[in-house]
């Protein structure tokens, strides 16, 4: 499935479990410019709730979409500032 978003970067955290998907997502967004979208590929089923919670509780980022794609959870996060 190809993303319908114009992603600036893709972070692959497949296999990693809590808390690493969130920690690596945070580090990856630090390097983005405002407006950029980060795609995160994870296999941790907790990442659906965790990345949503992280994005809504953190300034400067917003969750654009989350897609369950077979065994992979795709997260799209936009850097807002």
């Amino acid at each position: 499935m190809s993303a319908e978003f114009d992603t600036a970067e893709t972070l692959d955290v497949k296999g990693a479990s809590c808390p690493m998907p969130v920690l690596k997502t945070k580090s990856a967004t630090d390097g983005l410019d405002p407006g950029d979208i980060l795609e995160v590929l994870a296999t941790d089923s907790g990442s659906m709730s965790d990345i949503d919670g992280w994005a809504s509780g953190t300034g400067g980022v917003e969750l654009v979409d989350q897609i369950e794609d077979g065994d992979v959870y795709r997260h799209y996060i936009r850097k807002t500032e």
Partner: peptide, 11 residues
């Protein structure tokens, strides 16, 4: 450690 690092990720 998990809570500390995650809270840091929240800023």
């Amino acid at each position: 450690l998990i809570l500390a690092s995650t809270a840091a990720a929240f800023g």
